[in-house]
Design a protein around this nucleic acid. Sequence first.
DNA 1: GAACGGCGTCGAAACGCTTCGACGGAGGAA
DNA 2: TTCCTCCGTCGAAGCGTTTCGACGCCGTTC
Lengths: 337, 337
Amino acid sequence: MVKITDVARHAGVSPSTVSYALSGKRPISEETRLRIEASIHALGYRPHAGARALASSRSNVLALVVPFRVGMHVPVVMQFAVSVVTAARRHDHDVLLLTQEEGEEGLRRVADTALVDALIVMDVQLHDARLPLLRVLDRPSVLIGFPAEPAGLTCIDLDFEAAGAACVTHLAELGHRCVALVGSPPEVYLRETGFAQRVAHGFTAAADERGLVSMVHPCGATQAAAREMAQRLLTEHPELTGLVVHNEPLVQPLIEAFQELGLRVPEDLSLVAICPDEQAEQAPLPVTSVAVPTAEIGAEAVELLMRKLDRLPVPEATLLPPRLTRRATTAPRGLHG
Amino acid sequence: MVKITDVARHAGVSPSTVSYALSGKRPISEETRLRIEASIHALGYRPHAGARALASSRSNVLALVVPFRVGMHVPVVMQFAVSVVTAARRHDHDVLLLTQEEGEEGLRRVADTALVDALIVMDVQLHDARLPLLRVLDRPSVLIGFPAEPAGLTCIDLDFEAAGAACVTHLAELGHRCVALVGSPPEVYLRETGFAQRVAHGFTAAADERGLVSMVHPCGATQAAAREMAQRLLTEHPELTGLVVHNEPLVQPLIEAFQELGLRVPEDLSLVAICPDEQAEQAPLPVTSVAVPTAEIGAEAVELLMRKLDRLPVPEATLLPPRLTRRATTAPRGLHG
DNA sequence: GAACGGCGTCGAAACGCTTCGACGGAGGAA
DNA sequence: TTCCTCCGTCGAAGCGTTTCGACGCCGTTC
């Protein structure tokens, strides 16, 4: 293994100079720096991660905590994960993947052993068992999602409440008077996942404010469930013309289910989804949607963490405003009928 | 931070004794060990990962390389990932997540900096750009999937060729004479992903051998594509009664598409899928399937890696035999018709 | 009873890097 | 000219473990 002393000798400088040339923490003359870089190249030098971590007490590794729970939509979770990894690399950090098999102990372990410098926590519940630990850990963390009591924590997410409201507003402005929310699977609500509940609140509040008839239905993520839900909605609320779907894998099946029941989208039924833009765009009938900006959230979560690592102040709450893009699944009510 | 010398002092022994008590690499008397354990508990000692890595030249971290490519089915990939993480933890290792944004350079980096001890590589192509690097790296690796030239590498996967054949055999034994394979999306074949091609080979060879009429169709993973495929198959091959589906998200949509076209499953059309058992079991109509044993493969990949790290001999190729479970989507041909 | 071999423990030397204080020299100010 | 400052570099002291050789002690063996 080639080490920093080898590089130093080859370049005719001291090891500390090599180190400073690499880190930029002290000025090094252009000439020396180039010589060092040449030596590094010539020898194929790579600093030893463990040695670096020991000496600097920085591992340059971030923990990404993602509990895989039933009812969650894995592809979207992975979009977050990928964007976190990408952003972390831009800051010269790597990402350790923690699933939740070990429970909170895993977080404690990687933090206490200094395996990671900081943590990004996904799928936050309103009363998340990990919160007490995160508050007391000596490593900074950022949550993707908001618990019930976010004070003292750094959280970031789409403003799901506003997103739910934005969907209603859009539908109301198109003249719809009776709207339904088809939400996440029941398990997701039962374990009190913040974003699911917040969409429902925002949806209901906005509908009430505008005097719309509204209803909220959790729904399992299968085609059969979609079909059943469509059937039931039509039966129980024949006047329904506006639908909000906050359940990624269900958007397409729901549209088809309604079509099979003889409704045209958007002529008879307008539908707006809350989902990543890529999904909404790629659908056969492009879906009007409020974007879940996974790339943006993941990247910003990393930025926040980096700032915390640099002991810079960060906002406790970062709520991304919803952005609704009108596509082909919404239209004014009664346009054709 | 409490360090090993603190524990040593508290327990009245030398640091090296604490280290040996922890690692078990030298015998320590029962009495001393208990005293040390008590001290560790009392002080809340956690060995520093970096220091450990430096001194032992073992980071106890595995790299999991998963390129997210178009056309791949993310949930299945994540099942692999989770099982790898779980198995790694059983061996006191953690898992670093590498996506392929950096390309091969990322692999080289984590290996050369000794950030990881070993690598697990997923989504292997027949002519994978990462292979030369893996062969030359000083860290051991295990591939989940087989390249065209696996010699000198350690690979593990389901025997997809046998899986394809097993599906045909099952259908043939039920009396079916004309069978089709609906495969992965075209992109997956185009970039020469081994498992996709192998299923096709196994399928075709087995069909030929038994004198069945057979055809292979890649298919995009959308409902529209499923519908179109069903339509086309029926039109072009009215005598078709047996279907093999190797495309997870398409199983359900295909069944429904055929049903909408008036075919009963399994009375008029038998269908066998190649997918994880959980998926096959949870379907409304449980699907006869050859299991993709993600948990088993992930766990065994880790075992192989651990053995390699211990310099024990391992087989170059581990091909898991297919296991077909008969469920509700296959039946003898012409049973009702 | 002397020699021997384990067992259990210790001390010290790495492991490869970062960082702190120091220092020579060049340039500017007085 | 002298003094001071700042730039660029060096040397050495860690960072917290692991591991190697050594050593004392006790129980065997002849």
